[in-house]
Each structure stands twice: as structure tokens, then as C-alpha cells.
Amino acid sequence: MGLVHDVFGKAMGRWRTSGHVLDAAGEPVADITGSDVYEDGPGGNWIVHHVDVSIGGEPVRTLELIGEGDHGVLLRAFEATGELHTSTAHRLADGSIRIDGGDSRATFRIAPGRASGSALWERRSGRDWVRWMDLRFERE
């Protein structure tokens, strides 16, 4: 099914999501709980990613469309707040997924057996990258 499924195919399905937002020292400052769902979009050419989490007790809902762009996999995240985020993704040699959003990036890993996964989000701080969110995923 093409590049999109080659990169995100292992993520397909429903996940229980948990983790933390981290401060500049890498210490947890807010809990993250909820769910992520990855499913085929119309015609199987897109993946639709539904985010329904709580961060520090505040609801965060996002609809993300993942498809092929001019330079690989393109992700468009539509936030409930009205914000739009665009990023790109590619698979790394170790099988993990690197998502690059300019001032933020993530490394997303699915464990062997596909029953769990993790993601480390980083954000730019000047010229450096600092840990921002540490997430864990368990299949539902």
C-alpha cells in the first residue's frame, strides 16, 4: 500500500497512551493519558490518526492525516483548538519512525510483536534539542 503503510503500518490499530510532559531538566511536570487510533483512510491511500488524550487534566483532541507528499510521508495534524501542524516522517534504519515538525521532532518505536510502543518527543531550544514528552503505547 505504498510508502505511508511502509512507514506507519506497524502503528495501525488502537493504543492506550500514557506518559509525561517533561520540564527542561527532564523531570515530569504533567501526566498524559488517553488513546491513539491509526486506521486506513479513504481508498487505503491515507492513514487517519485520532488523538484523544488528557495532558495535565486538559483534553487534547487531534485528527491527523498521514499520506504521501512531495518529499516522503506528510502528516497534517488538525487540533481541536484550530491549530494546524505539518510535519514529515520517514523510517530509520532500526525500524523506528522519525517525525520532524521543524521546532519539534519525535522518534516513535513499535516493540517486536507490536503489542507496545514508545515515543520520545523533543523540541528545539535555541540550537539544542530538549526532551519534551515521553510516551508509552499499549495495544487495546
Rank of each mutant, 00 (worst) to 15 (best):
M1N: 09
V4Q: 03
H5N: 04
F8H: 01
K10I: 02
A11M: 15
A11T: 09
G13D: 02
G13C: 04
R14E: 15
W15F: 01
R16H: 09
T17W: 05
S18W: 12
G19H: 02
G19A: 01
H20D: 13
H20Y: 09
H20Q: 13
H20I: 04
V21C: 07
D23C: 01
A24M: 02
E27Q: 14
A30P: 00
D31C: 02
I32L: 09
T33F: 03
T33S: 07
S35Y: 02
V37T: 15
V37W: 07
E39S: 14
G41K: 10
G41T: 12
P42R: 15
P42K: 11
G43T: 05
G43I: 01
G44A: 02
N45Y: 12
N45R: 15
N45Q: 13
N45E: 15
W46G: 04
W46Q: 14
I47C: 05
H49S: 14
H50P: 02
V51K: 13
V53H: 06
V53N: 13
S54F: 08
I55Q: 15
P59D: 10
R61Q: 12
T62H: 03
T62N: 07
T62D: 10
I66A: 08
I66K: 08
G67V: 03
G67P: 00
G69Q: 03
D70G: 11
D70W: 05
V73P: 06
V73R: 10
L74K: 08
L74W: 05
L75K: 11
L75P: 02
R76E: 05
F78I: 10
F78R: 00
E79L: 08
A80D: 13
L84N: 01
H85W: 08
H85D: 10
T88C: 08
T88E: 05
A89K: 07
A89T: 02
H90W: 04
H90P: 01
H90K: 15
R91G: 04
L92C: 08
D94E: 10
D94I: 12
I97F: 07
R98M: 07
I99K: 01
D100A: 12
G101P: 04
G102K: 13
D103A: 06
D103Y: 03
S104R: 10
A106K: 05
T107W: 01
T107G: 00
R109T: 15
R109I: 03
A111N: 14
A111L: 07
P112T: 15
R114L: 13
R114H: 12
A115S: 11
A115K: 13
S116M: 08
S116C: 09
S116D: 04
G117D: 03
G117A: 05
S118T: 12
S118H: 03
A119Q: 13
L120H: 11
E122H: 12
E122Q: 11
R123M: 10
R123N: 04
R124L: 08
R124W: 07
S125V: 05
S125A: 12
S125D: 12
S125Y: 01
R131F: 06
R131L: 07
R131V: 00
R131M: 00
R131P: 00
W132F: 10
L135I: 05
R136S: 14
F137R: 01
F137V: 02
F137L: 07
E138Q: 06
R139G: 01
E140S: 10
